[in-house]
């Protein structure tokens, strides 16, 4: 695994994403998803909303970094608020 040049932060990053995927897979098996139409005007399932959250969070982090808006961990707070919004309204 040395060739992959692992670091602790990136390992944590991937573990978080992997556990999210596993959790949502298990959730989907236990409680089948029912699509619903949200503010975006199209049907989304729980998995879709997770995808929108993760992709959006990546962009929020990049924009935060590009605008030099402050320490990076605060971007994660914005992401959490964003995630709440996506799961509630999208």
């Amino acid at each position: 695994m040395a060739w992959m040049a692992w670091t602790t932060p990136t390992a944590i990053f991937f573990i978080v994403i992997a556990s999210l995927l596993v959790t949502f897979t298990l959730l989907a098996i236990k409680f089948p998803e029912t699509p619903r139409t949200g503010v975006l005007g199209f049907e989304t399932t729980r998995g879709d909303r997770l995808f929108i959250t993760l992709l959006g969070s990546a962009f929020i982090n990049l924009i935060w970094l590009g605008l030099e808006a402050g320490p990076q961990p605060y971007a994660l707070l914005v992401c959490l608020i964003y995630a709440g919004g996506v799961f509630r309204w999208v």
């Binding site: 060739w3 040049a5 990136t10 990053f13 991937f14």
Partner: peptide, 14 residues
């Protein structure tokens, strides 16, 4: 796996 490696590279210098 290649993509994960790229992420690892992106936070390091070599």
């Amino acid at each position: 796996i290649p993509l994960m490696t790229v992420v690892n590279y992106s936070v390091q210098d070599t």
